[in-house]
Design a protein around this nucleic acid. Sequence first.
RNA 1: CGCGGGGUAGAGCAGUGGCAGCUCGUCAGGCUCAUAACCUGGAGGUCGUCGGUUCGAAUCCGACCCCCGCAA
Length: 316
Amino acid sequence: MRNLKQEPVKTLFLGSSWESVETLKSLNEDSRFDIVGVITTVDKPVGRDQVLTPSDVKKYALENSIEVFHTEKNDEKYREALKKFHPELIVCKAFGEIVPEFFIDYPRYKAINIHFSILPKYRGAVPIQKAILNGDDKTGITIMLMSKALDEGDILEIYEEKILPKDTNLSLRKRLVKKSAEILGNTLENWINGNIKPQKQDSSSATYCWQKDISKENAEINWEEMDPEYIERMTRAFTPWPIAWTQWNNKRVKLFDVDIVKCDSNKVPGELFTDNGNLLLGTKLKDLCIKVNRLQIEGKQEMSAKEFINGRLGLS
RNA sequence: CGCGGGGUAGAGCAGUGGCAGCUCGUCAGGCUCAUAACCUGGAGGUCGUCGGUUCGAAUCCGACCCCCGCAA
């Protein structure tokens, strides 16, 4: 039994995105852990002007005087990192690189990954989006050992979280980030003190999700084939990126917030029309329409349906 | 110099050389048992900024600033 408060665990953190920052922050502010360094992706060009920008994790680390290291998918660099930091524990969240096996085997207390699904369901890059898209009523957090293959390591702890009817990828992700930051420290302490026996995953029931499923191309609504329910889930799963969209007057229209409503119309699927002050889109089902609450026309700012109607924009 | 759309009242938009407009909101009054209803009236604009052309510019020309879609 190790008293972590007197003898903090030398921890190396791997991550890149804003959600990894929350995880890093919770560990950095936890006296049981001593963050010896952070590995993150190199600065990337970002936005319309392609300005070279450090990752959110790098920004946090620099502000908090934590040493930053870039491995750039290079085995030699990984060896260098081990020599430099001598970690007893590695924690990884939304890093964006596949790490070599010798690296995750090195620390005394192994390498831990946090994944936002109930593994072995939704192994891969976009588990939250996929859970919403599939209409699941719950998802969760898996804290697990890293292994050679992606998301296949033994499980230390699972936390379940309900998916609410209006949940978007963003809103659900925020809850999971917050929750995982709350439970991580204790889970790690239990693991380090030998109170957790890792559970093997049942790989025969594994499912997978790929980043390419969540792309601008896949965010275009196919009105002939998609059910209204699926379209509504798309708008939530594709928030805040890439945003479900369709065509109107040869322009892209992003749909930010929609509802499914009963309607009695013979509109063509995908046709935009107004009815009683509502902005509706016809679907392949005659008695159901998509009611648009917030939208954005290409070249315009995001606006409410009411604002869109007030401007008339060619609608009769 | 990656490609493209845009900046006009608080919001959304129309307006290609000749009085600054529309829908919504807002304010005042009216009607109504009642209102996101209806009627009447009002306030609210350096037309992104600077310069140029012109008798006259929101409108044409040049430069710059800002917002957005695509691409990466």
